[in-house]
Every structure is written in C-alpha cells, then in structure tokens.
C-alpha cells in the first residue's frame, strides 16, 4: 500500500488545513537566546568540572605512581630476608625427612605371626 484511499487522504488534507502553522509569539526569539545562554553557562560549568576532575585524577595517579606504589613494593621485598626463606625451606625439608625416617607404628588388632 503506497497511498491511503482517496477519502482518507482527504481527511489528512483537512487535518493539515485545520492546523495551519501558528504565528510565533513576540518573545520567541528573545526567549530562545535566553535558553541558548543558559545552556552555554551550564555547558561551561560542566566543562570546568570535567577539567577539575581530570586534573585531580591525574594528580592522584602521579602520587600513587611516584610515592605510594614504590613504598608498598619495597616493604614487601624487605619483609623477608633470603636467610629466612632458606631457613624456612630447610625446616620443611627436615620435617619431611623425619616423617619418612620414623618407624611405622604397629597396627593394633592384627595377630602376630
């Protein structure tokens, strides 16, 4: 269906005639410029807030990158010495060796041959 039937087209034509283009009020253009100015100031405010946020985020990232992260990494590295690590590994190895070397406890309840 590329078109409406004639009588329906006629109704739409009458609708167009019934609603002609209205005349704009005398305040139309002054009010339009007021709205444009209002939007401009809110846009400027948004832009400033965005700039401030970006600057703060950059500063925070710099502080984290330059001061905080190296300190945290350093603390983690120095918290255990090489000697402590070796001693801990030695202890583990000793425990394992002791466990395998110990004689098995006799199983109770089984008659001796």
């Amino acid at each position: 269906m590329n078109e409406f039937p004639q009588d329906l087209q006629q109704v739409f034509r009458q609708y167009r005639e019934a609603l002609p283009d209205p005349e704009p009020s005398v305040n139309f253009t002054p009010m339009l410029w007021e709205k444009i100015e209002a939007r401009r100031s809110s846009l400027t405010m948004m832009r400033r807030l965005t700039h401030a946020f970006v600057s703060l985020a950059t500063a925070a990232a710099l502080v984290l990158g330059v001061f905080v992260i190296p300190q945290v990494q350093e603390r983690r590295v120095l918290s255990t010495s090489y000697a402590e690590v070796v001693a801990e590994e030695g202890n583990d190895a000793q425990e394992v060796a002791t466990a395998f070397a110990a004689p098995l406890a006799p199983v109770t309840g089984v008659p001796a041959q």
């Binding site: 609603l19 002609p20 283009d21 209205p22 704009p24 139309f28 009010m31 709205k35």
Partner: peptide
C-alpha cells in the same frame, strides 16, 4: 524556519501549549 517548524511541531505533538518550548529546544 520558526513558523513552519512551529506548525510541524504543533501537528507532531498535538498540544498547542508546549509548541514554542519544543521549537525553542529545536533551535537550541
């Protein structure tokens, strides 16, 4: 353009009271 745009909006939204507001929003 304001007059034809006011007419189009009038027919699109069906409410004569808000036609100028919507037309101003278009031009903004």
């Amino acid at each position: 353009c304001r007059k034809p745009i006011l007419g189009t909006i009038r027919r699109l939204i069906g409410n004569p009271d808000d036609v100028e507001d919507v037309a101003q929003e278009v031009f903004v």
